[in-house]
Every structure is written in structure tokens, then in C-alpha cells.
């Protein structure tokens, strides 16, 4: 799958990180790949799930 179209979801609160959009509030520019997020990345909404917990959503 193209990494730029990849979306990853927090299994706890369902926050979605979309690499194409990034996360402006958190300071991740559009195009920042999920893989390139810092290692201590935690879910911006619930804070209790981490990078390794996020689930890649299959593109439809």
C-alpha cells in the first residue's frame, strides 16, 4: 500500500492518523508518514495508546 494514503487508528478512542493530512494541532505536517512519527507518539485524543498499538486501516 502507498504509505502516503495509509491511515492508522487508535483502538481505544478511534482517533485516525491520516498521513496525507498529518495533524496540524500536534505539529505533524501533511505528508508525515505514520512511520516517521516520534517513537514516543501517543494518541492525541486519549493518550493511552501508543504507536505500536495503532491499527493500519485497509484502504477501500
Amino acid at each position: 500500500m502507498n504509505k502516503l494514503t495509509a491511515k492508522h487508528q487508535c483502538p481505544e478512542c478511534l482517533y485516525i492518523y491520516d498521513a496525507k493530512i498529518g495533524d496540524e494541532y500536534e505539529g505533524y505536517d501533511p505528508g508525515t508518514l505514520f512511520e516517521d512519527l516520534p517513537n514516543d507518539f501517543s494518541c492525541p485524543d486519549c493518550s493511552v495508546r501508543f504507536k505500536i498499538d495503532f491499527i493500519e486501516l485497509s484502504s477501500i
Binding site: E12, C13, D45, C46, S47, V48
Partner: peptide, 10 residues
């Protein structure tokens, strides 16, 4: 109900 709050913070 703090136990559930910390398990599911949102």
C-alpha cells in the same frame, strides 16, 4: 467511577 475513566479516558 475512576477505574473505568482511566481504562477508557474519553
Amino acid at each position: 467511577r475512576h477505574s473505568d475513566h482511566h481504562t477508557h479516558p474519553t
